[in-house]
């Protein structure tokens, strides 16, 4: 089977499998990621979609923006649904009733993935289904009006972690779901953003390619919840990567690769200051919170660097033995 080169000119000749006319907000990051995922795939895709912005807004009855077989599932079970579809596919294949090569993707937001769908996701990964789970992480329950999730960053103002005289936004750090998925020991885990379209598409192809479960965590800007102008989705994603708030990395069979290291790591305030949800952190009495935000980013980034260095040293040792 031929694969489309990852060049925009070539990719643009493919059919867009998510149409316009969906009702996600102007400037939403999620559909940018979804379009890229489906453009990257050169095989037929069947998708399950957890409840959330993406599901609601792309399928307002009687319309659907999807040009692939697509199943709406509840908030908590997108991974279970796609597991079932994949198991059925294997059974039909075994019985000789289907010969076509088909791939299976589940889409969920951070609410449906980090929180509500977490147990079904963990179960599907452990059972080893040949599926890809994609989380588009916009860092809160945006669909219902910006409630905090376990993906919401430290200090963010949401309707259930309101910044004011009692608390300065969310008190807890973000859960590191990508690392938790890596701890499942599955063949492929990655983190990316739609601003880095080539990185995203390469990762989607790797995820579809591996036999067994794969997980991709995609940062997806939400201008309503992040309190940004509608044209910021790509710029803010770039800042997330340049500040190492959202590093681009992947685990292939447990081995970590950092896909991009900024020449000069920007301070995390560069990412925070463009977003209204962090505005209160910039008042003088909250300076220590900005420092803490930086510490959280540094801790994660340095741990990644150490881990990658360990793998490299390990491989050098192996090479010397040979």
């Amino acid at each position: 089977m031929s694969t489309t080169p990852l060049r925009l000119k070539e990719l643009s000749k493919k059919e867009d499998l998510l149409t316009g006319g969906h009702r996600l907000c102007a400037g939403c990051g999620a559909p940018i990621a979804i379009r890229q995922i489906m453009l990257a795939a050169d095989v037929p895709i069947v998708a399950a979609n957890a409840t959330g912005c993406l599901e609601v807004s792309t399928t307002i009855y009687p319309y659907s923006a999807w040009k692939i077989p697509w199943i709406h599932t509840a908030f908590e079970n997108a991974a279970a649904t796609i597991s079932g579809v994949e198991a059925m596919y294997r059974a039909l294949k075994r019985k000789g009733k289907i010969s076509e090569e088909i791939k299976f993707i589940a889409f969920g937001g951070d609410g449906g993935t980090y929180d509500i769908g977490f147990q079904s996701l963990s179960g599907a990964m452990e059972r080893g289904h040949d599926i890809v789970y994609v989380c588009y992480d916009n860092g809160a329950y945006m669909n219902t009006g910006i409630q905090r999730s376990s993906a919401t960053p430290f200090g963010a103002n949401t309707t259930t972690s309101p910044a004011g005289s009692v608390i300065p936004g969310k008190l807890q750090p973000r859960k590191n779901l990508t690392k938790i998925m890596a701890a499942h020991g599955i063949p492929y885990v990655a983190q990316t953003t739609p601003a880095h379209w080539r990185d995203l598409m390469t990762k989607v192809r790797k995820a579809l390619e591996v036999k067994g479960p794969a997980f991709i965590n995609i940062l997806a800007s939400c201008n309503r919840g992040w309190r940004t102008p509608t044209d910021r989705a790509i710029e803010d994603s770039k800042l997330a990567v340049e500040t190492c708030f959202w590093p681009l990395y992947e685990y292939e069979n447990g081995r970590l690769t950092i896909n991009y290291k900024p020449k000069e790591k920007k301070p995390v305030v560069e990412f925070l200051k463009t977003q209204g949800r962090f505005k209160h952190l910039f008042s003088p009495e909250n300076e220590h919170l900005l420092q803490h935000s930086q510490e959280l980013v540094d801790r994660e980034w340095e741990a990644l660097l150490r881990e990658e260095a360990m793998w490299k040293a390990e491989e050098e040792k192996e090479e010397q033995k040979d």
Partner: peptide, 16 residues
């Protein structure tokens, strides 16, 4: 609720 694939294409969001 099975709808025609890609029918959202008919929906006008340009007025937003």
């Amino acid at each position: 609720a099975v709808t025609e694939a890609g029918s959202a294409d008919e929906y006008n969001t340009g007025s937003w």
